[in-house]
């Protein structure tokens, strides 16, 4: 009996792998070191730049974090959706729609060309709430369709992607909305976007780890049928998860418009893909049940480091797109390979 237990114990210890986040962190460090090395030797093929450090540059580091903060906020929601086994393709368009509608409540009366002159000089709580509610409403529609009509998440959120973009254009017939009140600029100024991102990531990290909400989210993504027969109201929970993801897209819209001091119907295009990429690079499994907010934050940093690194090395924007696409596909391939290994073991 004892011998058997020992064998089982050793077997399990042997099988246990480093948690996904550690691998992502190692990936982040390796990528940063590669750019650092390339920074010092790049005069070898570029005559226009001197040897320099990639990492020891405060401005660059703050740009990296600043760049990923807004899509990172979206990724916090998208991560939860993916853990349930779903997907949200609508977040970029929802950012566009929420940006337009929220901004129309944030205009200053000094702006003679206000789109809705009677909505000027509102206290900032109004546009802030409007942004979150617009996002949440889109999430309710997504979640409702997915949970109660059993439309695949891919299709339901693809529909919302088109619809929300349409609403963004229709709202002002394509006209941008600019010149918000001075107070409104608070969300996007300085390091505020980063602080909002970090606060939301920390909040949802705790929620996923320590609450019933988190337990249900993982259980549904892991085995929806098991969750259902165990007494979890799967439909109601999915509705909640998509609503939260939508609300986070709304917050991203708030920060983005506050930072750019303008809202345009084309805002947020492709943000959903960046957010999904951050999650996937961060080790969130597209088949559900696995991943974490910590992983996604690390994935977001990898994303930011790569983007900034390419610019640092003077790589053309076209190549950046192509290489980024390759990285996303590699992350998914790695996930599928992990899946297969796990299936073989079971």
């Amino acid at each position: 009996m004892w011998g058997n237990d020992m064998r089982v114990a050793m077997n399990t210890a042997h099988r246990r792998q480093a948690p996904g986040e550690v691998n992502v962190l190692i990936g982040l460090i390796v990528i940063a070191i590669i750019f650092e090395a390339l920074g010092w030797i790049q005069p070898a093929w570029r005559s226009d730049v001197a040897a320099q450090s990639f990492l020891l540059n405060k401005l660059r580091l703050s740009i990296i974090i600043g760049q990923v903060a807004i899509t990172g906020i979206i990724a916090v929601g998208v991560t939860q959706v993916i853990i349930t086994g779903g997907i949200d393709l609508s977040s970029g368009s929802v950012v566009g729609a929420a940006a337009m509608i929220a901004m129309s409540f944030a205009q200053a009366s000094a702006n003679a060309r206000a789109v809705y002159p009677y909505l000027t000089d509102m206290p900032i709580i109004v546009p802030a709430l409007v942004a979150v509610l617009c996002g949440a409403l889109a999430g309710v529609v997504n979640g409702g369709l997915i949970a109660y009509t059993k439309i695949p998440p891919f299709i339901a959120t693809l529909g919302m992607m088109v619809t929300a973009r349409g609403i963004a254009s229709w709202y002002t017939k394509g006209q941008p909305i600019s010149f918000p009140t001075d107070e409104y600029t608070v969300f996007g100024s300085g390091m505020h976007p980063v602080m909002i991102f970090v606060a939301l990531a920390a909040l949802f990290h705790l929620v996923l780890r320590y609450t019933l909400y988190g337990r249900r989210t993982y259980a549904i993504g892991s085995n929806e049928e098991a969750a259902r027969v165990s007494g979890i109201n799967v439909e109601r929970h999915l509705l909640l998860v998509y609503t939260i993801a939508g609300a986070l897209a709304g917050i991203a819209a708030l920060v983005l418009t506050s930072k750019n001091l303008t809202a345009q119907a084309g805002m947020g295009v492709m943000y959903e893909l960046d957010a999904i990429a951050m999650a996937v690079i961060g080790g969130v499994s597209l088949s559900g049940g696995r991943g974490s907010i910590v992983g996604t934050v690390l994935g977001a940093l990898i994303f930011g480091v790569i983007t900034s690194g390419f610019t640092f090395l003077g790589i053309d924007a076209y190549y950046q797109q192509i290489i980024k696409g390759g990285i996303i596909v590699s992350a998914v391939v790695a996930d599928v390979a992990r899946q297969k290994r796990a299936a073989r073991r079971a």
Partner: peptide
């Protein structure tokens, strides 16, 4: 639920709660 550990599976759907905040 394959991705959860043993206690989570044992208590799946009847989790013990320290502080009641509805779904949270």
């Amino acid at each position: 639920a394959d991705d959860l550990d043993v206690p989570s599976n044992l208590f799946l759907g009847r989790e013990l709660i320290k502080f009641n905040l509805g779904p949270f």
